[in-house]
Amino acid sequence: MERRPTVLELVDFLRTLTKWTNFAQNLPGIEEHHIDKIKAENKDDIDEQKRVLFNKWLAIYHRATFRDVISALEKSQNGDLAESISEKLKREGEGASRGMTVSASNVSKLNETIKGVLDSKFAVLKSATKNSIKSIVPELFSSGIISEEVREKADFSMIVGDFKSNLDLKKNKREVEVLCCKFLNGLACQGGPTRAAADSLCGEWKKSIKEKHDIDFNLDQYF
């Protein structure tokens, strides 16, 4: 529960949350004027209000973790939802433990395959994201995949470079899987061509890793 959530994870996990203002009041960093502005600018659209809230919170509170989310839910009388999310995160942690059975040398080989597939699809991905890249970079930044500099420049080559650098820091298979899911979710967040390109990349990663390493690559967090 100590890891930082992404906007898409919050949208997915908190889909059933309707009375979001009480929840928001208990998020560290969120103040009443933030809530008032969100409600005023997104009238009658609860889903969009929540998405704007999540973006705002992650942008202004850099120490945000899932523990903050659980705490805010409990304080706002949403204990059942808090428990449900805790269980999901627990299962994710168990998956990470299983992922550690892949040796460090095999993780390195796995990463090379991931990079190779990404390079082979670079032109297609760059073209697909051309018209929506400025909408994609906030999600990738909130996921910790790209730096502040890359967010400001919104350059796809630099985005891929930061992703690869993050990939090299991962120590086990599950960490690699989670990072790849965050990257795919960031690309797919605007739908349309970028979603189709992300779907294709996801499928090719799974196929290539199975063929080259006889490993089932679990991208269950790609929504």
Rank of each mutant, 00 (worst) to 15 (best):
N106L: 13
F122V: 04
R15L: 12
G79M: 05
N42M: 06
E112S: 14
F13P: 06
F141Q: 05
S103C: 07
V117L: 05
G29M: 06
L10W: 01
F141W: 11
R98Q: 14
T16E: 15
A123F: 13
S76L: 02
V124P: 05
S105A: 13
D36R: 11
K75E: 03
T16M: 12
E32Y: 07
E74K: 11
S127P: 00
N55P: 00
S143R: 07
S108V: 07
R91F: 08
A123Q: 11
H33S: 14
N26G: 06
F122E: 05
T65V: 04
W20G: 05
K19P: 04
V102I: 15
N78H: 13
Q77V: 08
K19G: 10
K19W: 10
T16Q: 13
K115H: 08
D119I: 08
I35V: 09
I70G: 02
E92F: 09
F23N: 06
L110M: 10
D119G: 08
A104D: 13
S142K: 11
E48V: 14
T21Y: 11
A40F: 11
A72F: 01
L125P: 07
G95T: 01
R98D: 11
G99H: 08
I146E: 04
I146S: 06
T65H: 04
I38M: 00
A128P: 02
S76Y: 01
T113K: 12
W20R: 06
I30G: 02
K50N: 02
A64H: 00
I60A: 01
R63Y: 13
L110K: 09
E92L: 10
S120D: 14
K130N: 11
T18I: 15
G95M: 02
F122A: 07
K130V: 09
I114H: 02
L53C: 03
I85M: 05
R91L: 10
S97P: 00
S142R: 11
S86L: 10
P28E: 02
I35A: 05
K19V: 00
K37D: 15
N106Y: 06
E74T: 04
H33T: 14
S71A: 09
L14E: 06
A82Q: 03
L17I: 07
K56N: 01
L53I: 03
V102G: 01
T16K: 14
V11L: 12
E32Q: 12
E83W: 09
